[in-house]
Design a protein around this nucleic acid. Structure first.
Lengths: 212, 212
DNA sequence: CAAAAGAAAGTAATTAATTACTTTATTCTG
DNA sequence: CAGAATAAAGTAATTAATTACTTTCTTTTG
């Protein structure tokens, strides 16, 4: 059924516009639904368009997933990495990055589901490759920040940086899983600082260590 | 595979036998395939039975998932918790539990996929409830071990035990995700001790000097 | 104890729904 | 008007579940 468009509003959108609307819809839907059970019909409904129309803007579903993965990767890079670059002190940068990441997830609760869902898929599909690549980049960023922290003498030089990177990502994962279990995704922003504090205790330089 | 006590060949298996065979098949299949894409036909094929025969032993698919979740919960409890109970010293118990958990995952690579897959499902389906409950029990176990460690003066009393429990589970998650990215699940057993060492550095009591 | 009777486990084929994707016709916009 | 965007109505494939029927195991009973 067609409704007459309101005056001043475009009834028909450009392909680019529809593409980003669709990506946004997928990200939103993932907040309340398992990505693997997302149907093109449900996505189209969210966009406010017929199911078939989706294929005017994406050649197929897996291509849509690829676009979504690309969007996530881009957002993570710009929103999280850029925060880290604002700090001279490496340990402060790590903390800010951690909190920015948690904030990003809190604003987009579907993201963890999305990324985990992609990683669970077998094979080397494009979307999985993008997520994989982004995670590798992330790990690299953390390791280099840790090294800078050692140079700045804010991080103990005896630290196992590779292990710390895994634990850093794990800390985020732990928060997310905890939130999934509790069903309360907003709560992670509250507990995030406590988790990071504990995490950083494992490598904080203890040259001055006043007992309280 | 269980052998019948008598050497006579048995063409038809008992429902109980088929049920556990089916659960085993699902766990194995999850090691190489996204759980949400597992079809009853594929499962039946693995068991070596017709697709329809599955429904002689399970009323429906979701009931099968419930059984699988129950199996996982049981195995985690018996295999991981029992290890912890063998140690008097709480921090040693935590480490043994951590390594036992990683070993369990290495032996059953489908388990993380299974659990994460269940948690991603919306609503309060039985299988999800079981996983959720198991995780809660797990968290509780860690917290109580931490408290015992404080009493034994092996763990610093200033520790945020709730945060530590999240970080502990996160450390396992981080290892698993890292393995998923790398595609090499066997590697986690190798890196596990390093991760735990770093994790425990965040709360190890340094003033105390235990004899070993 | 053996044969009949029934219960349980199995198969192959089918069904109703659902899915990603396609085709056709219609409507909007520059 | 021409081309792009859309809706509506398809299609073929896949899926969980059911069905009608057969085979095997267990129990009852004369």
């Amino acid at each position: 059924m067609r409704t007459t468009p309101e005056p001043g509003k475009r009834a028909y959108q450009s392909t680019e516009q529809r593409q980003s609307e669709t990506i946004e819809a997928v990200v939103h839907l993932c907040a309340e639904q398992d990505p693997s059970s997302l149907t093109t019909a449900r996505i189209a409904q969210k966009v406010g368009v017929s199911q078939g129309a989706l294929f005017k803007h994406f050649p197929n579903k897996s291509s849509l997933w690829e676009s979504v993965a690309g969007w996530v990767a881009g957002q993570l890079t710009t929103q999280v990495f850029s925060v880290a670059d604002q700090y001279e002190q490496a340990d402060k940068a790590l903390e800010a990055m951690f909190l920015a990441h948690i904030g990003f997830i809190a604003r987009h609760p579907g993201i963890p589901r999305l990324m985990l869902g992609e990683l669970q898929k077998p094979g080397n599909q494009p979307a999985k490759r993008i997520i994989r690549q982004t995670l590798a980049l992330y790990r690299q960023k953390i390791v280099s920040l840790l090294h800078r922290g050692i140079e700045q003498q804010h991080i103990t030089p005896s630290i196992d940086t590779e292990a710390a990177a895994v634990l850093y990502i794990g800390a985020i994962q732990g928060l997310v899983v905890q939130a999934m279990v509790g069903g309360d995704i907003a709560s992670i922003e509250q507990s995030a600082p406590r988790i990071f504090k504990l995490f950083s205790a494992s490598f904080r330089e203890t040259s001055h260590d006043p007992k309280e």
